[in-house]
Nucleic acid binder design. Structure first.
Length: 561
DNA sequence: CCTGCAACTTAGGAGGTCACGC
DNA sequence: GCGTGACCTCCTAAGTTGCAGG
């Protein structure tokens, strides 16, 4: 039974569906020109812009409060693209971004957003109903006898591109997507979606070897964007299940693979040593594969195979430990990875060797790339790739941590703290970080004062209990019984608050969601809930329960990853 | 082998929503 | 009822992987 996901892929020859029908995408609303009293000034003088130039100007105006509109690259890219949208007269006149005054536009949009917030209940309700109507009309499709939810049926609206980190293309104009940019994918025997009146699709195709419904090419990187199904859909769920089954197969042979790469550290071939050390990092530190990236097209980030000499430092001895490697680099989304880890002597010596006679910006693994590595992994196990190690190590860590941290005596809040701590161990392993919430310090203080107040309350209650007991002398009366109950109740409340404070403090810069959604076999969590009588709702919200419906159905309390 | 493309998964942030305590 | 903050949803960028074609 557990082999089913594999069989689906193997025996159906890449066919993803037999029938697919949908209504096509929802386009971004057309540009609404701003009222004429909202003015744009160039060099102090009012200037009426053409609608095309005005629209792009509003994109900038909406971002005026963001720090990145002060960045040179952002301004340069924006200005270049904006000028392309201007009439030749505008282009002749507007030659310096510094002389552009967008403040009235910016104020106008702020006022609009305030007005939206201040809308009456009825108006808000109306908008909600309209959204619901659109969702019902466009948010679902029929795939093989099932009505399935579509993930992103709205086309991305135009605006200014803001990549993550130090992105060379920040500020560029992301253009509006029109029906003639859209490729529709559906089955031949379905009702083909209608393009908006007076327009045509770029293409309608019937490719049942892919899962997407709609695609278009985006103008910043020239990559293709897709509309696909929601994670709750059959097609995504089966794929997810299969991912965890592959990770479980790795569990069965990971010892052999580890023994192999340790052996390969001694190889006389440089490429094999490099491959073996890289694999060790991927396994031990859950690093990503690290594809090469085109310079100047994206932010300068790396993964394992693309590490450069400048990203690691070697310490023969550090704080009482031998053979310490310090990693410091920007990974996916320009999130910093910083870690100091003791490694085996052989790894350390190999790293010294790889770094010999190299410049800081040279590749650490110059004989290796992700394609070589994945080909090797494929030979070690069917379906094995670099990212399977992340899934495997994340899931096995959760399982181990849950076993270690959960104790039978704990109450439910304490058990959930244990769960969160196990989840946190995984998030730390995978380096899933978040910016500390803007209100973190304040909300922490508020919680602390609640705790203080609760402590005072407890002290009072204890005092009252004592005097009640003294009053009652010999026989235990009703009053002291009640006081005792009050003390217990307050103690419980205090404990709950303290647990909450600990949990929040430990979670300051850690994001749990990513691992929960993408790396942790949900059956581990479901089994844990069953074993300890925790309602699964305490662990997964509604969306998550929909995504993991397959696991909730499947896993019993004795499930082992 | 290398390059580029296509398809799909993984990612953090913004902003909306809703529950909870006062 | 009201304000606050935690949680959730949406958004879309940024990865990984496999494959085709030279």
């Amino acid at each position: 039974d557990q082999l089913r996901p594999l069989q689906i892929l193997r025996y159906t020859d890449g066919v993803k569906w037999k029938f697919l029908e949908h209504k096509g995408p929802v386009f971004a609303p057309a540009y609404e020109p701003i009222p004429s009293h909202v003015k744009f000034y160039y060099d102090g003088k009012h200037m009426k812009l053409s609608p095309e130039a005005e629209e792009v100007a509003t994109f900038f105006a909406k971002m005026l409060d963001h720090e990145y509109t002060t960045k040179d690259i952002f301004r340069k890219n924006f200005f270049k693209d904006w000028r392309k949208e201007m009439t030749s007269e505008e282009r002749a006149k507007i030659t310096d971004l510094k002389k552009c005054d967008f403040t009235e536009m910016s104020e106008y949009f702020k006022a609009q957003s305030e007005a939206r917030k201040a809308m009456s209940k009825e108006e808000k309700q109306k908008i909600k109903e309209e959204n619901e109507r659109i969702l019902q009309q466009y948010g679902f499709c029929i795939m093989d006898n099932h009505k399935e939810r579509i993930a992103n049926f709205r086309i991305e609206p135009p605006g200014l591109f803001r990549g993550r980190g130090d992105h060379p293309k920040m500020g560029m104009l992301k253009r509006r997507i029109r029906p003639q940019d859209i490729i529709i994918n559906c089955s031949k025997d379905s009702k083909v979606p209608e393009p908006p009146p007076g327009t045509k699709w770029k293409e309608v195709r019937h490719d049942n070897k892919v899962t997407w419904l709609v695609s278009w090419t985006e103008n910043i990187q020239g990559s293709i964007k897709y509309i696909m199904l929601n994670p709750s859909s059959r097609i995504k769920g089966e794929k997810d299940w299969q991912k965890y089954e592959t990770a479980r197969r790795l569990k069965k042979c990971v010892d052999r693979i580890r023994a192999q790469y340790r052996e390969d550290w001694k190889s006389k071939e440089m490429r094999i040593r490099q491959r073996a050390v890289a694999l060790y990092f991927i396994d031990k530190l859950a690093l990503r594969a690290g594809n090469e990236k085109e310079e100047g097209e994206t932010a300068d980030t790396v993964g394992c195979c693309s590490l450069r000499v400048e990203h690691i430092k070697l310490y023969p001895e550090n704080e009482g430990q031998e053979y310490v490697v310090e990693f410091d680099f920007l990974g996916k989304d320009s999130i910093r990875y910083y870690n100091r880890v003791p490694v085996e002597k052989r790894v350390f010596k190999n790293l010294q060797l790889f770094m010999e006679n190299k410049e800081p910006d040279d590749d650490l693994f110059d004989r290796l790339n992700t394609s070589i590595l994945n080909k090797h992994l494929q030979e070690l196990m069917d379906g094995l790739t670099a990212k399977v190690f992340r899934t495997y190590n994340a899931s096995i860590t959760l399982q181990q941590q849950l076993k270690e941290l959960t104790t039978a005596e704990e109450n439910i809040p304490a058990k959930i703290l244990s769960y969160n701590r196990a989840n946190r161990a995984v998030a730390i392993l995978c380096n899933h970080q978040r910016a500390p919430p803007k209100t973190f310090e304040k909300s922490m203080q508020n919680l602390q004062s609640k705790i203080d107040a609760k402590r005072d309350q407890l002290a009072d209650a204890k005092r009252e209990l004592k005097s009640a007991k003294a009053d009652a002398k010999v026989r235990k009366d009703e009053k002291s019984k009640n006081k005792k109950k009050a003390v217990q109740r307050i103690e419980e409340q205090l404990m709950k608050l303290e647990v909450q404070a600990t949990d929040r403090e430990e979670n300051k810069q850690i994001a749990l969601g990513t691992s929960k959604l993408n790396y942790l076999d949900p059956r581990i969590s479901v089994a844990w809930c069953k074993k300890w009588g925790i309602p699964v709702e305490k662990i997964y919200n509604k969306t998550q329960r929909e995504k993991f419906a397959w696991a909730i159905d499947m896993a019993e309390e004795d499930y082992e990853f």
